[in-house]
Amino acid sequence: MSALAMLLADARLPSGGHAYSAGMEPALAGGMPPVEARALMLARARTTSLVEAGTAVVARNAVLAQAPLMPVQSAWAARTPAPAVRTASSAQARGYLRLADRLWPAATVFANLPERPCRAVVLGAIAAVADLPAADLVRLTIYDDAATAASALLKLEPGDPVEVTAWILDACADVEPRVAALAALTDPADIPAAGAPHSELWASAHARLTKRLFRA
């Protein structure tokens, strides 16, 4: 992966990702036993992470082709029905946009994004501006989701960081055979549509809690 991809995947990057648990806190708050955290990470890698990765790739290609991004945003929204998840994604997107404005102040694409863009669309736009290869973008998106969930787990249910890091690698390796196909996507209609209804229900309930560490 390129240096930029590794930078964007670094949890220390001040883009707001540290305030997001990739569904881990909602799952634990909803009653999921901590012992099932690895299974949750694998399930998300096979479902919501693929939606995010596919959206980012199609957004990247739309920017490069000077095509409108609203169809990409709409395709993502159709695959992400829970308002709580959409709101959390929009908050993450604002963090990435602050970074993009600092690194690429002359880029006009960031001023022409859809209203309240999702994280994946903004990542795709960044990838286009920064010449980040599509395959790197896919791996970045999948890794970031798994690493975010793992980081949140260690805060909520402290355990062995080495073991939890292995779960990140497991999640990435599990979907590695899908990387090439995802990197070739150009049509919003072809973005994966694998959903995670239980995770979305947990996120919706979590959004109403008054005591929580993460947005979602």
Rank of each mutant, 00 (worst) to 15 (best):
A130I: 05
P83F: 05
A130M: 01
E36I: 07
A78K: 10
A106P: 00
V63D: 01
P133K: 04
M1Y: 14
L182Q: 11
S49C: 08
I168S: 04
K155T: 12
A53Y: 06
A146R: 03
W104S: 08
V72F: 00
A135Q: 09
A37V: 15
P117M: 00
P133F: 01
F110Y: 13
G195M: 07
R116E: 03
P68H: 10
M41V: 15
A189E: 13
I126L: 08
V57S: 03
A100K: 07
L156A: 09
Q66G: 10
S2N: 06
L137E: 04
A193W: 04
A19K: 07
F110N: 13
R212Y: 05
L113E: 03
Q66N: 12
L8G: 09
M1V: 15
P158V: 03
D131I: 01
T165V: 00
W167R: 00
W167I: 03
R178V: 12
M6A: 13
M24E: 09
S15G: 07
Y20E: 15
D170N: 09
A37Q: 13
A130Y: 06
V138E: 07
A207G: 12
P192W: 08
R38Y: 15
T210Q: 13
E52K: 15
A59C: 06
F110K: 14
A189K: 13
L137A: 02
Q66P: 00
A78H: 09
A29D: 10
L69W: 13
T48A: 12
H206T: 13
S151D: 14
A205T: 10
G30T: 06
A183F: 09
L99V: 00
A194G: 10
D144W: 10
S151Q: 11
A203G: 08
H206N: 12
Q73S: 09
L7D: 12
R119T: 03
A134T: 05
A91S: 03
S90P: 02
K155Y: 03
L64K: 09
S2M: 05
P26M: 10
A135N: 04
W202Y: 15
P71A: 01
W76T: 03
A78V: 02
E200Q: 09
E36F: 14
